[in-house]
Structures are given as structure tokens and as C-alpha cells.
Amino acid sequence: MGPTITAVETVTFEYPADHVTPNPLGTGLQYQPGARTDLTTHAIRIETDAGVTGEYVGGTAPGMAQVRSSAGTLLGRDALERERIWDVLKRTLRKFDGTGIGPIDIALWDLAGKHHGAPVHELLGTYRTRLPAYVSTHAGSEDGGLDTPTAYADFAADVRDRGFPAYKLHTWRGFEEVDIEREIETVRAVAERVGDEMDLMHDPVCEYETYGDALAVGRELDRGGYYWYEDPYRDGSKSQHAHRRLADRLDTPLLLTEQTRWLEPHADAIANDATDFVRADPDLDGGITGAMKIAHVAEGFGLDVEYHLASPASRHCMAATRNTNYYELGLVAPECPTPHSEPPVYDSYTDTLDAAEDGRYPVPDGDGLGVTYDWEYIRDTATASTRVEK
């Protein structure tokens, strides 16, 4: 019998992000030098009768609502029975997207590492301890920053010179119309500047209006030798049939499933040839447990899994996965070297561009996730909090 869960605390808090602002339609952020935007994120603490606590900062608003609605079911459970808890939460949240499982599961892995005196990647089974990264850009704006094809190519050259082996474009999003010619010019400009020296990826984030637009840009990616083409158009990457047809007409491999929730739809996308690379996200896909399940399904089909965005949880997952290629260092931009998703609550951990050595990041080697959070900052900037206890 392991430690018994006695309390679950959640906090929603705000933090400032420099050089980003909401895009015109409010569908996401864009890079805007000189701007400052207040962002919201979440924190969870799981306490036990043994005094060991699991902690995690991250998640989404819908996911945290699910955490709060499910927290009572954790009380009295063995905190080391992660697989059983994962199964109970999956059944509990079956009518929802299940994103509430992620923060709970990650906090339980942190707790387990502290209980056993080991980092999470060691509990999973370490494969590597240095992670090659691709620089993943913020979306561009119309006024300054990443506002031209040349600006994207210049930033690519800059991060190449810093030693990064790969670069992914997020171009313009959140506008009423998409300028497909500018998209084509941008992926061409980047390929001409650094394509012989870096792996290149392109992610329109489901912005292209039509299959035809996605096909036109994809053909330019073929000419530029891009490594993958991610979430091209506005079906929200939901149609396996459409993406299988798109893949049949392109040489550039597709990467889908970032917009896919639950394990089984990931497996279906793989089995139906809808994607070439598989995306998994510890935050959104059932925590470290769920993300590793997706990684192993992909491995069974001979495919690679790529973990979404930079975080301690993603580092540990990648460290314990053979069939993966790059750590996503993002989202960043020329004057925005720290990912927008990194609040100022860590002691020494950071995903800033300058923290890389030859384009690679180390895996935390402390117990659990190997990070320490500033709970005073979290509580001082809180906009909502809950606590349930036994």
C-alpha cells in the first residue's frame, strides 16, 4: 500500500507574457514586439498521509474544470495506483474530452518520483538524457515581428547559428482570409535560406480554408524537402479520409492528432493511414500515462511520436521514448525567447532559447518532475482556487 491521497488543491492564476497579443479573431496568440498580455494557467497539488506531495503547473480551463469535478474521487486512493486512477478518470470523464486527466496524472507521477527518490524518466525507463530540439515559432502578425517571408527566414538563420537542428513555422492565423501565396512564399524563403542545414516543419494550425489550399502549400513543402506538414486545414484535423487522400498526393509526411483526444482515436488515425507522425501531449492526452500509451501504439505501427510543446512532463516523456525525434521548443520568436506557456514559477528550470546547448536540452534529474514551483507567486496571482480533503 502506497501513500493515501488526503487532499487535492487547484489554483488558477495569471502571469504576464511579453511580445505576444491575441490575434485579430481571438483564436490564439501572435508575436507582436512590445506588446504584453496576461495569460492564465493552472496548478495542482495532491497531498498524502505520508507527507509526500505531487505538483504540476499547466493544463487548460476545460481540463481544470474536469479536475475540480473529479477531485473527490481521488480521496482515500493509493497515490501509486496511477493506472487504476487513470482508468477510473477515463470512465468518469467519458462524455467529455478527458483533458482533466492530464494534470492529475502528471502530479501523481511527480509524487511517485518523490516517493521513490527518482526522476520520472527513470521510473518510465530512460532512453536518452539530452533532447534535440526544433525551434517552434509564434504565429506572425501584420505589423512588425514575423510579418514577412524574409522575417521567418531571418529567424531560421539565427537559430541555426545557435546550433538548433530544426525549425517549425507557425505562420499567420486568426485573420478573416488566408493569403495562400504568402504562405507559399514563406515556406519557400525558409527552405532556400536554411533547408540544406536544418530539418524544417510547417504547421498552419488548421487555418487553410480548403483542401485545395492545403494541397498547394503541401506541394511547395515537397519542393523544399520539409520534414513534416502539420494540421493543414479547417476540418480541425478530424477527417482521416481527407488526410489520407492528401498524404497520397504529397511526398512530405503529415503530422496529425494534436487535435485528437483519447487513446483510441489516435490508434484509429494510425491504422487508417491518416498520419505519418503521431502527436501526443501529456497535458491534453491523459498525462504522462496517456502520452506513453500513444507512444507505444505508434511504436507498434513503426511510427514516431512527437510530444507537443515544451514542459517538464514532455522532457520526461521524450527521455523515455525511443521512437521520437525532436523536442518542441515553443512557442518563441526573435524578441520572445521564452515559450509563452512558461510562467515565472520555476526555480532553475527554463525552456528559453539560451538554455539549450548545441540545440539540445537536458532532462531534469531531480526526484519526480525535478522542478520546484513558487507557490507564493501562484497563490498571490490566483483568480480561483479549490481544495477538497478527506
Rank of each mutant, 00 (worst) to 15 (best):
I5N: 11
V8D: 03
T10E: 04
F13Y: 12
F13W: 02
P16Y: 13
L25G: 02
T27W: 14
G28I: 01
L29Q: 10
T41K: 03
A43F: 10
A43H: 06
T53K: 01
E55H: 01
T60F: 15
T60Y: 05
M64W: 11
R68S: 13
E83L: 03
I85L: 07
D87I: 03
V88P: 02
K90A: 15
K90T: 15
R91G: 13
R91N: 02
R94F: 13
G100V: 05
G100Q: 03
I101Y: 03
G102R: 09
P103Q: 12
D105E: 07
L108G: 09
K114E: 08
G117Q: 10
A118K: 09
R128T: 07
A133D: 01
H138D: 12
G144S: 11
A151E: 01
A156P: 07
A157N: 06
A166Y: 08
K168F: 11
E176A: 15
E176I: 05
A189G: 05
A191Y: 07
R193Q: 14
E197N: 06
D199C: 14
D199V: 02
P204A: 02
V205Q: 08
C206N: 10
V217H: 07
G218W: 10
L221V: 06
G236S: 05
S237D: 04
H243T: 02
A247Q: 10
Q259F: 14
A269R: 07
F277H: 11
R279Q: 14
T289G: 08
G290W: 04
A298M: 06
F301A: 09
F301L: 08
A319H: 12
A320L: 09
L329F: 10
P334E: 13
P344K: 02
E357Q: 14
E357P: 00
Y373I: 03
A382W: 00
E389T: 11
E389M: 10
K390W: 07
